[in-house]
Structure formats: structure tokens, C-alpha cells
Simulated assay, not measured.
Amino acid sequence: MDTLTIKTSTNKYNVFVGTKLRFKTQELLEKVYKSILIITDSSVSELYLKDVVQSFADNEKVYTAVVPAGESSKSAGQYFDLLTKAIGYGLDRHSLIIALGGGMIGDLAGFVAATFMRGIDYIQMPTTILAHDSSVGGKVAINHPEGKNLIGNFYPPQAVIYDVDTLHSLPDKEVRSGYAEVIKHGMISDLSLFHEVKVADLTAKLDDKIVTSQLLKGIKVKAAIVEKDEKESNIRMFLNFGHTLGHAIEAELGYGTITHGEAVAIGMLFAIRVSEDHFNISLPFGELYDFLEKNNYPLRLPEMNNDVLVSRMKKDKKSRDQHVQMVLLEQLGQPIVKEIADTDLVNLLNTFFRELG
């Protein structure tokens, strides 16, 4: 088992990465809780919920709540229903919520924890590759029909328990989704990670040792940034590389039509083209495109109105005064945030989508 410690302005917590950790949940916690609510989704519950529940053999007050799998569950309705269940189960300010699942569950359960009785403890137990990113850093949220993660908070967990055994049950699209964020961390900070991942064959069986190493590298990139900027006032925005267009695509197509990481992958390609145009440089667009194409990422999308996409991009949390702020690359590994004019965006999107075919 590998352990990283994340230090923020509000707390310090450990990230545990290893195998069979779901069977050791109780012993990895620093506190004893009299009541625990495990929130998961309908896919994960069939695979791992029983294991986590049984790791609390001495605690009779372990409750569970299962929401439908998929991004559509990260909604106001599911959020309110979970609060109602927490009240009904008698949770109090000394209880614990466990977010068992992917990024959707981490965001949703974390937001429930952040707001129930003005905030109670929670831990992240990610079961996807994508969640190596979302489970670290304390950003929790639900979606609004007008945009992704528009209702949320900064609320760090008490721990992150990452059992890499759970990754073997992931469908191919979720492996792709997660590795988009892994390669993102390489592109904005760790060039060795980028060059390592860009040749990866995601269609082959996952190797625990390689995946663990790459996840740890990605988590270290995020941890270093979060420790310097917990509330996303400056450099934490760099972690949104590819997300400005990615979030707009997700919202326009309908959440769940393609995965978050698949949308971000297209967003990163676009951010590279905007960077090349803005700074008059050459970046590894072809290398990233080849990695995505080889690993069956969806690169050709249904036709979308580019003016509508720009309108959605303006709802991005980085936007200021209705102007789109994008994370660009001055060079590989050197991110920067720049304002891009609407007309430029529309023209660049027109060219970009023609290029993708």
C-alpha cells in the first residue's frame, strides 16, 4: 500500500492506494464513528458494497443508499433524497458518509456531507480511474441543467481509500475516461507521465503495478497544485485543462451521452489548437490524437451549434464577466489561463470540428 498526505489550509488527510483496501476500511480511519452512511450507485453496489459494509463488522449502524448509475444522478433531486435518508437514519454531526464509486458519487456524496448539518466527515472510496482526479482536492458538487458542477463547495475528505482491485471491473469507456485525466496531469506538469501514457494500450488488461504507478503520479500532480491553491483562485484552474469545451460538450449532448473523460479528451485537443494559434507554437496535437484514436476515444461527435457551445463555455466557473477563460499551454508542462474572444472561439471551433471530421 502506498500513502500520500494532502495538506490544505483547512485539514490534512491521507490518500491510500493499494489492493484489497475495501476490506480494511475501518482500520484505515483515524476516528471511530457510531453511524455511517455509505452512498454508492447501482453498478458499484452489486460489486463492492457488501465488502465495505462487512469491513465495519463491529458497527451495527452502517446504512446504505444506492442511486442510479450515471451522471444524471448528480442532480438536485438525488441530492435532496440523500439528505432525507441521512435524516431518517438518524445521522448527526459526528457521523460519517462514505462515497463509494466514481467521480459522480464522490461529487454527490461529498456535497451531501458538506451540507448535512452544515458539514460532517466523509471519505472518498473511488472505484474508477477517473476518480483518482476527482476524489483528491475536496471539490464537491451537483450539476444544473445549464452546466456541470455549478452548485457545489470546497470540502476536503477525511481520507481517500483507493482500492485498485475495483478498476478491473471497469468497462472500456470508463478506462478511457480515467486515462484522459491521467494524461492531462502529464501535459500540464509531469512530462515523463505524458510520454509514458501516450504509448499506452488501454485495450489490454490493466496491470496493477503500472496503473498504480501512473495513478500515484497523477495524484501527486494534483496534490501539489491543491496544496498551493485550495479554493481555485489561481493555479488550481490549471487542472481544468480541456474542461472548458469538455464540460460544454457534456451539457450540450446530455450528461452521460459520452463520459466526462471522453469529452475532456476532445477539449484537450481543442485547447492545444487554441494554444498553438494564440502563442504561435507547435504542441504534440498529433501525439495526443494518435493516443486517443488508437484507444477508441469518440473523436467524431454529432453536429453541434458552435455559438451554443460558446454560450455554454461562458458558464464555466473560470469565466469572468461573460468572457471565456481557457487553460492553454505556453509549452508542454507550462499551463496558463487566457481570455479568448467569442468570435475567435467560434472560428476556432469551426476549424477544429472540420479537422476532426
Rank of each mutant, 00 (worst) to 15 (best):
Q78C: 14
Q78M: 15
Y79C: 07
Y79H: 12
Y79D: 09
F80I: 14
D81E: 15
D81C: 11
D81L: 15
L82I: 14
L83H: 11
T84D: 15
K85Y: 06
K85D: 11
A86K: 07
A86Y: 08
A86L: 09
A86C: 08
I87S: 13
I87R: 09
G88P: 14
G88T: 14
G88W: 15
G88L: 15
Y89G: 00
Y89A: 01
L91P: 00
L91G: 00
L91N: 01
L91T: 00
D92S: 10
R93G: 10
H94W: 06
H94K: 14
H94I: 07
S95E: 10
S95V: 08
S95P: 00
S95R: 05
S95I: 10
L96T: 14
L96N: 10
I97D: 08
I97Q: 03
I97N: 05
I97T: 07
I98W: 00
A99Y: 06
A99S: 08
L100A: 02
L100E: 00
G101A: 05
G102C: 05
G102P: 11
G102I: 04
G103Y: 03
G103M: 07
G103W: 02
M104V: 15
M104T: 15
I105W: 03
I105N: 03
I105K: 08
I105G: 03
I105V: 15
G106H: 02
D107Q: 01
D107M: 02
A109S: 07
F111R: 09
F111Q: 06
F111S: 03
V112K: 05
V112P: 01
V112S: 10
V112H: 06
V112W: 04
A114K: 02
A114M: 03
F116W: 08
M117G: 05
R118V: 07
R118A: 11
G119P: 13
G119Y: 04
G119Q: 01
I120T: 02
I120F: 04
I120Q: 05
I120K: 13
D121E: 12
Y122D: 10
Y122W: 10
I123M: 07
Q124F: 11
M125S: 13
M125Y: 13
M125H: 12
M125T: 14
M125E: 14
M125R: 06
P126D: 05
P126V: 07
P126N: 06
P126W: 13
P126Y: 09
T127A: 03
T127H: 09
T127D: 08
T127F: 04
T127E: 04
T127N: 09
T128Y: 05
T128S: 15
L130W: 10
L130I: 12
H132F: 13
D133V: 00
D133A: 03
S135E: 12
S135A: 14
S135C: 11
V136Y: 06
V136H: 03
V136L: 03
V136C: 02
G137C: 07
G137Q: 09
G137M: 11
K139R: 03
K139Y: 01
V140T: 07
V140Q: 05
V140K: 02
V140M: 02
A141H: 04
A141K: 04
I142S: 01
I142Y: 00
N143F: 01
N143E: 09
H144A: 04
H144Y: 00
P145N: 06
P145Y: 07
G147M: 02
G147Y: 01
G147I: 06
K148R: 03
K148N: 01
K148T: 00
N149R: 02
